[in-house]
Amino acid sequence: MDISSNDNATAAAERALSALAENAEDGAALDTLAGSDVLVPVPDDADDEAAGDPTVVALPVIEQPDGEPLVPVFTSELRMAELLPSVSRYRLVPLGMLAAQWPSSDVSLSIDASAPHGLTLSSQGVRTLLVRPHA
């Protein structure tokens, strides 16, 4: 059975998330995660022109029960479908690039929220943990 490079990348990202659940300061796991691509759902209210522009990523902000804003991203279509089955469009974005351009406002990031290895980071955590120096 052949495993595609995308499946390998998804598995690596999920292993990194599991490692971070055990040790939030695991540098190798943070590097792997920051170098991974994630699926960013395209908000329903995004127009077709913006959705098709590769230079624009509209963040799908969800309000948590406590009122705090959260952006969900996913390591695979399966993980996304578990939490947001109605999503019909998404963008594949390098997580490190997304983190480098994270809004300065208090918006959290949730990676694979429905999975046992899910990780939620505060706005500051996104910028300090996932913006990795280039080797």
Results as ranks from 00 to 15, higher is better:
A13G: 08
E14V: 14
S18I: 00
A19N: 11
A19W: 00
L20D: 07
A21S: 15
A21K: 14
E22L: 12
N23K: 09
E25P: 00
E25I: 06
E25C: 00
D26Q: 12
A28D: 13
A28H: 06
A29D: 04
A29I: 04
L30F: 05
L30E: 11
T32Q: 08
T32G: 02
T32M: 04
T32K: 01
L33C: 10
L33E: 08
A34M: 04
A34L: 03
G35Q: 08
S36W: 00
S36H: 05
V38M: 09
V38W: 01
L39Q: 10
V40Y: 03
P41M: 08
V42Y: 01
D44Q: 14
D45E: 14
A46S: 15
A46D: 04
D47H: 02
A50I: 15
A50D: 10
A50N: 02
A51D: 02
G52N: 13
P54W: 06
V56Q: 05
V57E: 03
V57P: 01
L59H: 07
L59N: 05
L59K: 04
P60M: 15
P60R: 13
P60H: 06
P60A: 10
P60L: 14
V61H: 06
V61F: 05
Q64D: 11
Q64A: 15
Q64P: 02
D66W: 00
E68F: 10
L70S: 09
L70C: 11
L70G: 02
V71C: 07
V73R: 02
F74T: 10
F74S: 06
S76G: 03
S76T: 12
S76I: 07
E77T: 13
E77F: 11
E77G: 05
L78F: 12
R79A: 15
R79L: 01
M80L: 15
M80I: 03
M80P: 01
A81R: 15
A81P: 00
A81C: 05
E82T: 12
E82G: 07
L83W: 01
L84T: 09
S86A: 15
S88I: 11
S88R: 15
Y90M: 05
L92S: 15
V93S: 07
L95T: 10
G96D: 10
M97V: 14
M97S: 14
L98V: 07
L98I: 06
L98Y: 03
A99W: 02
A100L: 04
A100D: 13
A100I: 07
A100C: 04
P103C: 03
S104M: 09
S104D: 14
S105Y: 02
S105R: 11
D106H: 08
V107Y: 08
I111S: 08
A113H: 09
A113T: 09
P116A: 13
P116H: 07
P116R: 12
P116K: 13
H117G: 10
G118C: 12
G118F: 09
L119K: 08
T120G: 09
T120M: 13
T120A: 15
T120K: 12
S123P: 08
S123H: 06
S123C: 10
Q124N: 11
Q124D: 15
G125T: 09
